[in-house]
Design a protein around this nucleic acid. Structure first.
Lengths: 276, 276
DNA sequence: CCAAAAGTGTTTTCCATACACCCATGG
DNA sequence: CCATGGGTGTATGGAAAACACTTTTGG
């Protein structure tokens, strides 16, 4: 195993797959493309592409993110490695090892990308049908991780524009967790955590309609939340599980290795009413 | 990017690297090999090897784990994907993308592997010198993850033999976190968390010497800890950071992409007194 | 004036901490 | 009988959940 030989191994293709999320219209939405080519033609799939010889997977992911979203500047967006998927049969054509990334965007991104031939669409996460390859599992893994990271990191601000109200931040939590939070307590918790958010010197802003204008905040310098902001009890280990949050789709299944054991509980939109 | 062509890309080698930890003699120890070949010859490195054409990275990691530890049965050991390292220059010879895994072993594993030519050794994590390639960073990432996961998962039992005492479990926490815990409170917390540990019907056991015999426990079915078992405040965000836990070595650096902003705080062994 | 959303205050409950203390064993 | 480690009990402080209440806007 120490003897390197460029031809001792079959060529592996290395790609990146992107699970790009945003919160809009009170729903968690995902950026998906529709495949044209044959393996899974017509199916929805995660955006992605090859890692070029001179770039890291991280660089490739950010490049693809720019191409697929059509955004000019993606340097400020949250992009984070999820994990790597390497099952030998995950692509029927050849051996493809894919490094999956999760990206988080604030609400107002361009609805569809323009860089590529395959058009990308924002679709609500709940009620998605099966995806191409093992992308359903990748997406489910990404979604689970986001929900978990909201508990103990300041990640939620990545879903918000540069300046936001605490109400918007709370909506991010409520949308991702699928549970209502007590506003006074949420407020206290966020403000008590040093470096989570910081007030903007400017004045207050209307919320778009009736209601008292809300103060504006910026994301702070902190990345971790100590102590964490806990939700009820998502990982119901075994019995007696009154499921709450939308356990949305369970497309290309496979059992997660770490296993939260809490599988889907279809209570969102029972059948798929997607493109409306 | 949709047009597949087996020759459109330069061949990537895909490998696995293993960060294998154990707790022995009150210290966190790591399994390392000493390189014979030239790039970084004589340097310590993580065990690892190529992913074979027909296997997944996970399978390759478990195979390497068996080879390097010399253990006959590694099926019960905790093995978990850490992340993938893909910087173009991480191996001077060619393009190597490496999927890193973290493995946790109970105390009494064979001290060194026998499968491979390169002999593996257990070495205390604190006070290590620089490692080959970017393995120093990989190891640091793995170590950080372990410390964090002890807080909100039942991972600690992976460091323990099939049957263990609460004192042993507590020692795992204290060793990994580098902080003393209050025994009565630790005990209550662990026993109050359903599914963390379960008592063994058999009788009590001596602790090896003086002291009251301790009850034996087994790992339970739960994977997550709700609520978590928090330590003091590891990620000091920016200013005014009275560092506590040993920020051990910071070998082959590079700035982490996700960045906890809290970089190493050399207070363990001030300078590097490595190979002693 | 009413609805809706922001923001403040208060009470209650629970949990983590910090101890004091008893039990069982080896020397 | 004393040191050592296992195990139990208990008081106290602080934070989180629950909820009543005021403020400020638009219709």
């Amino acid at each position: 195993m120490e003897g390197y030989d460029k031809h001792a191994f079959e060529p592996f293709a290395v790609t990146v797959d992107l699970a790009v999320f945003t919160v809009r219209a009170g729903a968690l939405q995902v950026l998906l493309i529709e495949r044209g080519q044959e393996p899974y033609a017509g199916c929805r799939a995660l955006p992605g592409g090859f890692v070029l010889p001179a770039e890291s997977a991280e660089t490739a992911a950010r490049r693809e993110l720019a191409e697929e979203t059509g955004l000019a500047d993606v340097s400020g967006l949250h992009l984070e490695q999820l994990r790597t998927y390497s099952e030998p049969e995950r692509d029927p054509r050849m051996r493809v090892v894919s490094v999956a990334y999760t990206a988080l965007l604030p609400d107002p991104p361009e609805p569809r990308g323009g860089g590529d031939a395959a058009s990308a669409h924002w679709l609500p996460y709940d009620g998605l049908g099966p995806l191409a390859f093992d992308h359903g599992r990748i997406l489910a893994d990404a979604r689970e991780r986001i929900g978990a990271k909201l508990e103990y990191t300041c990640l939620a601000t990545a879903f918000c524009p540069p300046e936001f109200t605490l109400g918007e931040l709370q909506q991010v939590y409520e949308t991702v967790w699928g549970a209502a939070l007590d506003r006074p307590n949420f407020r206290r918790k966020v403000l008590a955590t040093a470096g989570f958010v910081e007030p903007v010197p400017g004045a207050a802003r209307l919320t778009g309609g009736r209601g008292k204008p809300a103060a504006l905040y910026r994301a702070g310098a902190a990345t971790g939340l100590h102590p964490p902001l806990l939700r009820a009890a998502p990982p119901a280990p075994g019995p007696a599980g009154p499921q709450d949050s939308p356990g949305p789709q369970d497309p290309a299944a496979s059992s997660p290795s770490v296993s939260t054991a809490a599988s889907a509980s279809a209570l969102s939109s029972s059948s798929k009413g997607p493109s409306s």
